[in-house]
């Protein structure tokens, strides 16, 4: 990109030619959250969140239970109403950018007894591309199979999903996200309750996504792996505590602010972090 893409607010007053608008920096920012507040039953659960996600990074959202991590994602994707603030995806409202966004909900949010096969679930990621009223054609089934192959699950394509282990179910969800072929991904606790080999597989996929220039935002619970897996961290506890490169932000001090009174745990953690990694 050229150096001339600095926003000039006065110039913005005039309608810009389309080509220039596309080059404006905001369209390069995968996610811009401005002053977002969300309330449930009038009780605010997120206050004045501001965040700008860098492109092509793996980003963790970290915070205690009830800190609004899932809500932040849902508010971003228009799944819960925002009381205030705005969200821009690559410079435009989410509504206009659906095709560039992939979403992996929490595994426990769906009924795994549902009569569908692993392949059916993965194909769901492409329903938008297939379009309304059209059946899933062979071409898309093949693409779904490839996505399953990438997560090492192609042998399970025909299995009903309740015959899969928790880790395998998570991989199917991930394959569905891959099939969405988005530029920006939101994943809600993809590492929750998975076995070690699935965790490795997921990390590999996340890194492959980053290599191909995608931005992935992950709600993450395991503080011990944040340094290893993620480039950026968002520390959240109803308010934005801190956000930025992991090395700068993921400090015992910031964690203490995020996790409030739970000092014993944090002292243990800081001890662990001071020790050389054993893995």
């Amino acid at each position: 990109m050229s150096t001339s893409v600095v926003v000039d607010h006065e110039a913005m007053q005039e309608p810009l030619p389309r080509a220039v608008a596309v080059q404006s920096p905001s369209s390069l920012v995968p996610l811009l959250i401005e002053d977002v507040t969300v309330a449930y039953h009038r009780r605010p659960v997120l206050w004045n969140i501001d965040y700008q996600a860098p492109s092509g990074k793996l980003i963790a959202i970290v915070g205690p239970n009830g800190s609004g991590k899932t809500t932040l994602i849902k508010a971003t994707l228009d799944l819960v109403p925002r009381a205030a603030g705005q969200v821009l995806i690559f410079g435009e409202p989410y509504r206009q950018q659906r095709h560039r966004v992939g979403y992996v909900p929490q595994r426990t949010s769906v009924d795994w007894d549902f009569p569908v096969s692993a392949l059916d679930v993965v194909a769901m990621g492409m329903y938008r591309k297939i379009g309304w009223l059209r059946p899933v054609s062979r071409k898309y089934r093949e693409a779904a199979k490839q996505a399953l192959d990438r997560v090492g699950m192609v042998d399970f394509a025909g299995r009903q999903i309740n015959q899969l282990s928790g880790g395998q179910q998570q991989r199917v969800f991930l394959a569905r996200a891959l099939a969405q072929n988005a530029d920006l991904y939101f994943m809600d606790e993809p590492f929750a309750g998975v076995d070690a080999s699935t965790e490795r597989a997921i990390v590999d996929i996340l890194r492959a996504l980053r290599e191909s220039g995608k931005t992935v935002i992950v709600v993450h619970h395991d503080l011990q792996t944040v340094h290893e897996y993620f480039d950026e961290v968002v520390l959240l506890n109803m308010r934005m505590i801190a956000a930025g490169p992991t090395a700068d932000v993921f400090t015992p001090d910031n964690l203490r602010k995020t996790y409030g009174g739970k000092l014993a745990l944090l002292d243990q953690l800081s001890e662990k972090m001071a020790q050389p990694r054993s893995r």
Binding site: K74, L77, D78, L79, R98, V101, Y103, P105, S109, V110, D111, F114, V116, V121, M124, Y127, R128
Partner: peptide, 10 residues
């Protein structure tokens, strides 16, 4: 099956 995903997909 997954109303949240459906909604995000339009």
């Amino acid at each position: 099956f997954d109303p949240a995903l459906a909604t995000t997909m339009g």
